[in-house]
Nucleic acid binder design. Structure first.
Lengths: 342, 342
DNA sequence: TAAAATAGTACAATCGATTGCGCACTTTTT
DNA sequence: AAAAAGTGCGCAATCGATTGTACTATTTTA
């Protein structure tokens, strides 16, 4: 089978006895081209099944119609939702996604940034890795005039465009709900403080507790990896204390699951003996027994919102820094793991 | 802040008083360039922080160092695992991923193909949508000399390079396990037959049943959408029959979950009264009560394998068609929903 | 009616890297 | 010592689209 060549504007030009520049302008609806030739060009273009070579045009104008996305892991429910949301919006505006994973390693993040710079992406949408504490590598982007937008995980002190969910509020609502159910000794399993989201969740927790007039001793806040094992370990730490918790608010669903499993193993009833709430609304939380109260982070909407923000900035030629910071409202999803009085 | 320009091979050439072509060749380790100039070029390159413009080189050589990936949905556990696997491998070889979703619509698949052609991707890795029954749109790819590899969902009669999991075997193992547990009237909730994976799973089911000397009437095979509701509906259909099922083998985990929930709602004990097994090893299956027996499809490995296949073909200049079809071994994960005699 | 404005195109340079061909010089072969 | 082979590099064309400038009619204005 002969390899069919892509046709170019020159092919169209030759067929029509005009110049390539005329074809180029006609296809861009440049007003300097007469209606008649514009039409002729269009007709010939799809007769030849012309498809513009994006690389040629990208090379010329310096913009690739591609945006880079950097996430810790693609195969994490939240992030794949975000990416899904982005793709939907950007695809309709003719943009492509280029996706990189950091696996929570700063080193990979640096490489990814470099890669995306080389690919001459028009913008980078980033959720920083756990290890990221400075932003020297991000300066490379702004130096090259590549817009940078953050979502979900934003480095401390960021003023540039970003979309996050109101973690503080999510935590606050969740803890308030636990308090309303009558729980008092609510412990908190937190992540690491230098990641904004975990810090905010902790603060939301503290605010709800303070408003309820409950003094939270340091010992109630357990900093653990937000995994099954972390939850398990937090559960046992809590249960060994003289003043045992009657509920746990976790900054992650897996940690909450770890607690739930550990609690059931030692015969505690949930929510009777122990209330539990998590964070993220992982798909499995709905199917646990009891089903797990959690906070939905609006992943898909977050993706759409960042994408929208980028598109708007692109149109208005404004800087990413000038774009505001959007804060989405999280949704508290009340399920059985915290529903005492019904 | 002045926008720092990317430096080019011409900048390097000027500094060193050599020609751009020499620089280009030096950077490619072309043997016709002397060791000394090669070194000088290298040194100057990173002194100027040179980064090749991939678009320029892509334009010239007609290859973009990018591969397109088309999946039904990014935010589905299995597919995000696959993509994760691909990314890992391809990134280390300097390839980028461009990702499109079809949302199971043929129409979107056609658009995605066209998009990827325009982006001049070096290859397309595809898992077809539910609606895809012909492959006219795929011919566009081969006509343009773009390699096409399939994973997981392969159109009937495909000979080109593909990676699938042995669905037949997975189903066979699963059903055999159910039989060993003593279940006999094992019903099957299947997907649609024109998708190879569902067809294979059904055949695996049938083979295991035949080998056990059990005759499977048509009525035992329930074709339902593989969702919660589909499972629920299948459960009720089965329970209304005079000869009720004592187990269900489902081609999807969500359908299995639907059955599990429906069964529990009517007071059936699992696995005592009813055995259940699913397919896909969704994360939630491990946390159900009882935990769900299922088949793992090796998503990450599948992604790595297709990526590897592409890289190999690329190196050997062989055609995708010449690449063999790899069949991965699935892993039966036995959990409590089917574990009778312990 | 001559000058000025406008419309519609074409020319040619450009984006940055790649590559076939050829030139000059050195080394090896006969 | 002349011919052949090899080495190291530069020239210039090329990939396909974009765009500033120039050019030729045609139309409008003074």
């Amino acid at each position: 089978m002969a390899k069919k060549q892509h046709s170019t504007i020159h092919d169209i030009a030759r067929e029509l006895n005009v110049s390539a520049s005329t074809v180029s302008r006609a296809l861009q609806d440049n007003p300097r081209i007469s209606e008649s030739t514009r039409m002729a060009v269009r007709r010939m273009a799809d007769q030849l099944n012309y498809q513009p070579n994006v690389m040629a045009s990208a090379l010329r104008r310096g913009s690739s119609k591609t945006v880079g996305v950097i996430v810790p892991r693609i195969n994490r429910n939240f992030f794949s939702n975000v990416i899904g949301g982005m793709e939907e919006l950007l695809a309709t505006s003719g943009y492509h996604l280029m996706i990189c994973q950091t696996h929570e390693k700063l080193e990979n993040e640096v490489v990814a940034i470099q890669t995306l710079i080389n690919a001459r992406v028009d913008a980078v949408l980033l959720s920083i890795s756990m290890e990221t504490r400075h932003n020297n590598h991000l300066k490379l982007l702004t130096e090259r005039g590549i817009r940078l937008f953050y979502f979900d995980r934003v480095p401390a002190g960021t003023v540039s465009g970003s979309v996050v969910v109101d973690d503080h509020l999510g935590a606050y609502l969740s803890v308030k709900h636990l308090l309303e159910q009558g729980y008092r000794k609510i412990f908190h399993v937190s992540g690491m403080d230098h990641i904004n989201i975990y810090k905010s969740r902790k603060e939301g927790y503290l605010q709800a507790m303070h408003e309820a007039g409950i003094d939270v001793p340091q010992s109630w806040i357990l900093s653990e990896p937000l995994l099954l094992e972390g939850g398990e370990s937090a559960f046992h730490t809590g249960m060994k204390m003289k003043k045992k918790p009657d509920a746990f608010f976790c900054s992650g669903d897996y940690a909450a699951l770890g607690i739930l499993q550990a609690a059931k193993r030692v015969g505690l009833s949930i929510p009777g003996d122990l209330g539990i709430s998590g964070f993220a609304n992982e798909p499995f939380t709905a199917f646990l027994e009891p089903s797990l109260t959690t906070v939905d982070q609006r992943g898909e909407m977050m993706g759409q919102t960042v994408a929208e923000m980028f598109l708007r900035c692109e149109k208005e030629e404004s800087k990413a820094g000038a774009c505001k910071q959007v804060v989405l409202k999280p949704e508290l999803i009340i399920r059985n793991s915290s529903l005492l009085n019904r």
